[in-house]
Design a protein around this nucleic acid. Structure first.
Lengths: 384, 384
DNA sequence: TTGTAAGCGTTATCAT
DNA sequence: ATGATAACGCTTACAA
């Protein structure tokens, strides 16, 4: 067993004061003479004293920490199938990217960045967990036991587990389809954003044949985006499909397969739609690869749009018109809601919708709008 | 004050056993009759009991958590200068990207991903902090008080603070220039990777005039890469510059300025080097923008290389040849070292160098090597 | 301004 | 297999 670390009473006796005084110094609670303060500070330095958060948390009945639960998107092949390496530098021609994107694209990294910032602003520490089996439940409860509140992203936790956890700490659900009246929620304008995007294609580019390229079946985000797609069609008197024309799985890889089948269909003489509206940027990028490789020009022959706003969609040729989700803002807001909830536990649950931005780029054709300075924005009123 | 949460003794009395037995059930330590186990589990469920990590940590003298300190790269303008918004969808033409990349490009997100995974494997929770003023010291000590060990990225902490913290918990320094004999370290093959890359340019492409485009002055990563650059030149009998020919700051924005000055110089009749070897991918991308815009072709007129392996460097036109850093692996290894250290505190400090990969892409010209299947690799021996 | 002392909710030791 | 009970290191009335 490790040798004993210095404790508050060690500091106290070394400084010739009581532990209460040391506590006051540490917590800056005032009512300490300058002399005592200096003595304590010195003792702390001499001893290399660091207060135990466990003891503090136990005594004060608050952890000073919040948690964020992210869904498991897999650890990533890089972490699991590790090559044995002796430290040599490898030189290789870049293999084709497989579209297996870490952390759900830039998604979780960005959410986390916003969450961390908000936690920092509130003076709280933050702990993160990807919730994966085995032992999911035990680990989540463990996390719940060490925080003052929890942000749960999407459908990370089963209802049962969420309920159990919620009996101990406040929960904010982020971008997850939950009963709105049980927890605070922060949502993304999936449907609204997609609807505005399709409005743009129809109104400003005069496009009349559009096909939706969906993501994994049953994914709530995808459903909402498809709903927005349909809403725009419907409002413009364009026939609304029962279900998405193409079904991908959010990955670039699967999108390439869809792309190849499209090219094949076109070769058979089938007419392509004027625009492919994709569930996300990865899908659009995969299609772009294949279409361009087969001589189909974007946007001249076919228009392509994405959703998310990942960096790669901005640097592709052409860059992809998309709906940008403010991921960091999402994380920030979730934590802000959470701290508000911790402060006043009895308020009614809130639902916050974070606005998205339709980013017009080359893949949907030229447009007359001039680029805006950062921060500026053209607000397009609802058509109605 | 919040109503009392159920405690272990609540569970105990409800299950008709002692708290010790409940503890045994929770910790799966065995020596519990099936009947007792079931009774306890039921009581836990009824009460919605979640064990307090604070109390556990205090009693068991271990936090079950590790921390990771990241240097502050700024919260990002998006989080600070927030627009007031009523939830409307904005539609705008994409403004020119400003190159201010969150989390240091994909850098921290990836490191974190690897760190989280390793922590999860070890059964530990993980807490993250960007160390920023004000109150940096207090916050870091707070973190130190709640963990069993700390990963410190780069030059995040002052030596004094690091020393203080290290008196309480083991430290692993990640990609930071520290005295090797005080803490465990995990490093990136900055110099080696750059050297191999430049070898490739010289040996395989026959390039003889190369200029280094540096990052922020004094950045250790940049220094090491420049050192690798020089080593390769020197070994090939090419004149070695005293200092980098161009000085950027890692940002795409600043790289564009450098690009414009290069174009200007070329217009004045000055000869451009055959290759611009950049400190990082962002810099290469910024140069690419400007050069291409002015009719200078890459790689035909000038070769461009980066460092890091960010996604955008793969999707640019042409894609950028670069040295890929396995960020996630870096995070994973750091945490692995840390858990090893926690297990045996008295071993000698270790230094681990993570191998990098030179990724050959279009920006350095065509090459005869055929793409390798993922996982395969051509290992180039050291020239000597 | 300072000290005393009673918790805080577990774990771990020792009996039984 | 189970139960008592003493820590664990701090905060926080309360008293002085």
């Amino acid at each position: 067993m490790r040798e004993r670390l210095p404790t508050i009473s060690g500091v106290a006796s070394r400084a010739g004061v009581s532990s209460a005084t040391v506590s006051r110094v540490i917590n800056r609670s005032g009512f300490v003479s300058a002399a005592a303060r200096v003595a304590v500070l010195e003792a702390i330095d001499d001893l290399g004293y660091v207060p135990s958060a466990a003891a503090r948390g136990l005594a004060s009945r608050q952890a000073g920490m919040i948690g964020i639960c992210l869904p498991d998107v897999g650890p990533g092949a890089d972490l699991v199938e590790r090559e044995v390496s002796d430290g040599a530098v490898l030189v290789q021609v870049d293999p084709e990217p497989d579209g297996a994107i870490a952390w759900g694209g830039i998604y979780f990294g960005e959410v986390l960045r916003g969450a961390e910032y908000a936690a920092w602003e509130a003076g709280l520490a933050i702990t993160v967990a990807m919730t994966r089996e085995p032992d999911l439940e035990a680990r989540v409860l463990n996390m719940a036991g060490r925080v003052d509140g929890l942000v749960v992203v999407g459908e990370t936790l089963s209802d049962d587990l969420l309920d159990h956890v919620a009996r101990r700490v406040p929960i904010v659900v982020l971008a997850g389809p939950r009963a709105a009246d049980r927890h605070d929620q922060v949502m993304v304008g999936n449907a609204d954003g997609m609807e505005r995007l399709v409005d743009h294609l129809i109104d400003d580019h005069g496009i009349e044949t559009l096909a939706y390229v969906a993501g994994r079946s049953g994914a709530p985000d995808d459903d909402e985006r498809f709903r927005g797609f349909c809403a725009a069609l419907s409002r413009h008197g364009i026939e609304v499909p029962q279900s998405p024309r193409h079904r991908g799985d959010f990955s670039r890889h699967r999108a390439r397969e869809i792309g190849r089948s499209l090219v094949e269909a076109a070769r058979q003489g089938e007419a392509l739609p004027r625009a492919l509206v994709c569930c996300n940027d990865e899908t659009a990028l995969g299609l772009l690869d294949v279409l361009v490789a087969h001589g189909i020009r974007v946007p001249e022959d076919i228009v392509l749009t994405g959703f998310d706003g990942i960096d790669a969609a901005r640097t592709s040729a052409p860059p992809i018109t998309t709906v940008e989700q403010p991921m960091a803002e999402l994380g920030r807001l979730a934590v802000e809601r959470l701290t508000a909830r911790i402060a006043s536990p009895r308020r009614r649950p809130t639902v916050t919708q974070v606005p998205v931005t339709v980013m017009l780029r080359g893949s949907c054709g030229p447009h007359a709008l001039t680029p805006l300075p950062p921060g500026g924005a053209v607000v397009r009123p609802h058509h109605e």
